[in-house]
Design a protein around this nucleic acid. Sequence first.
DNA 1: ATGAAAGCGCTAACAA
DNA 2: TTGTTAGCGCTTTCAT
Lengths: 341, 341
Amino acid sequence: MRDVAAKAGVTPTVVSRVLHNKATSIRVSEATAQRVRDAAKELEYRVNVFARNFRERQTNTIGVLHGVGFDRPILGRGSRYFGALMDGIIEGAFRHGYAVTLCPRLMSDTPEDAMSDGRFDGLIWYSTVPSDENVAMIRACSAPLVLIHPQPDDLVGCFPIVSCDNAGGVALALEHLTGLGHRRIAFARQGDQEFSESNLRRDAFESWMRTHGLLIDDADMLVVDPEDGVEAYLAAPPRHTAILAHNDELAAAFVRRAPAFGRRIPEDLSVVGFDSTSFCEEVRPTLTSVSQPLEAIGTRASELLVARIVGEALPTPGEMLSCGLDLRETTAKAAQTLSVR
Amino acid sequence: MRDVAAKAGVTPTVVSRVLHNKATSIRVSEATAQRVRDAAKELEYRVNVFARNFRERQTNTIGVLHGVGFDRPILGRGSRYFGALMDGIIEGAFRHGYAVTLCPRLMSDTPEDAMSDGRFDGLIWYSTVPSDENVAMIRACSAPLVLIHPQPDDLVGCFPIVSCDNAGGVALALEHLTGLGHRRIAFARQGDQEFSESNLRRDAFESWMRTHGLLIDDADMLVVDPEDGVEAYLAAPPRHTAILAHNDELAAAFVRRAPAFGRRIPEDLSVVGFDSTSFCEEVRPTLTSVSQPLEAIGTRASELLVARIVGEALPTPGEMLSCGLDLRETTAKAAQTLSVR
DNA sequence: ATGAAAGCGCTAACAA
DNA sequence: TTGTTAGCGCTTTCAT
């Protein structure tokens, strides 16, 4: 820039005004402006956006964090969960001219640094299982922050939170199954988390079943790992005609292993997953699943974040987007032998 | 930082040395250092990474560009092509402590700016179809740059290029098909590009078929759009027993539409796709396809880029990674009626 | 062992 | 209309 100024016989200030000032009045004579433009062109001058951002104390970039203690989310394999979310985040960010950055580990040496290191105008925190450590980090974050996924109660109201309506999704699945005549329905989840979306789904399941007078005992709440646990369940005498799993992977484990235990899907056992990632299409039979509006969630998160960044001191609403139910091939009418107890 | 210095009764220089200097000798007395650390802790001081990067003239960030004139690649729907590539890029970048940024449009007002705006230590250019405009931009780029996908000849040798061995992939597919007895094989592609990976595949197809004495006439080189074009081909009398498509989407179009025209897949017509994205699993029957090592390509691109960034003035090798062939359900023995002509 | 000074490239407030 | 000055937060000579 200095070179351009020298060549045009002006000061850097003028160059800045001519080349970058978007104000209506440039306050530079046309002749001078032209000289500057010519010089810039000749020297192939390019503004250093990084320096500009530094000076303006804004980076036009939002960071996507996924919490510590988890592997980096995978885009091209397995569930498309994170891919869909990212698409939404990117869509919303690009719409407002923000770039999106994915960070290694959590970037700098300590997570706290990462969240307030000046590289981002704002952050989207994506984590399904907020550990104490993560919650502490979230609390300590000084930059604008939007959370995706339901979060522990003590975070609600402090930050905008975007999530799907898990209870509504569970209800959709159960209405579908009971409509097919199922009465003996299990809920399957993996491991026990202190807090997570699984828990919300489990609670919603219990509550819905109870409300509808479908007897529940503890044995209906399965906690199984996708390998041995699922096989052990299938090896035992049938106790349910339908299973709602807390996510697609676990549902798929049932679908894939059932035939080996003489249980036909869906004739003997209906299975419903949760998330309806396109992974459901890769399972045979294809997996009926509760769908989350993942892209919409991502987009909304970006938009709320941008709103914060540009200073709208909005309230911090928890936004809940509705779920749907994608009917595929793993549900059918209940087998009569088990449907009445 | 100034505040910390004041509180500890030293200058910012000392603070910087105590908190951030990784040199073996800090050259600060332990007593002073401790005072600084205490002050920093009390004030909850966090280094501003952005400022540091500015000063050091390096951003620890690489940008991913996808060229102008195309829509932003999608991660969560359709083919997983870009998702897999991104996974590889991220993997390679994170391994060396670099963040990865996705940019809106091509970021700044003009593409040229984008590529030299100081925000990135280096760039990965991902584009399947380099238009003249894109080639010009690539040439003008002043930052370290690595290209993914085969590129026009005049770019070879100027930049590191990572791609798959398209000719090898075509050979794998054709060996498989001829091994099944197919002799009348078509190559299907979409539209005509001045330059693109499709062309390499087409050329490889022609050359392989000719070398192996399998008569070729122009009618074997289909140029069809995935809707009307495919239907028109299927509506006409059968001319081939197998089709190799330039990508999975087009292959899927044949598979999906064939039944409506009385052509069973694979009994009447074998179909092979290209890329073997997990999308192949969503087609019925599942799609046999040539696989690219997408993640490996992405990772390698990141690594070459990092090598450039840290200043290894390496030669600019074109790296070609081998393809594989994922056998699924869309290929079978050739129907006799057509196999001999 | 510590401090003073300079400067990365840019922009904005103010002065002329 | 143009120039001067100052400073974003940090690190790095170089001097003390």
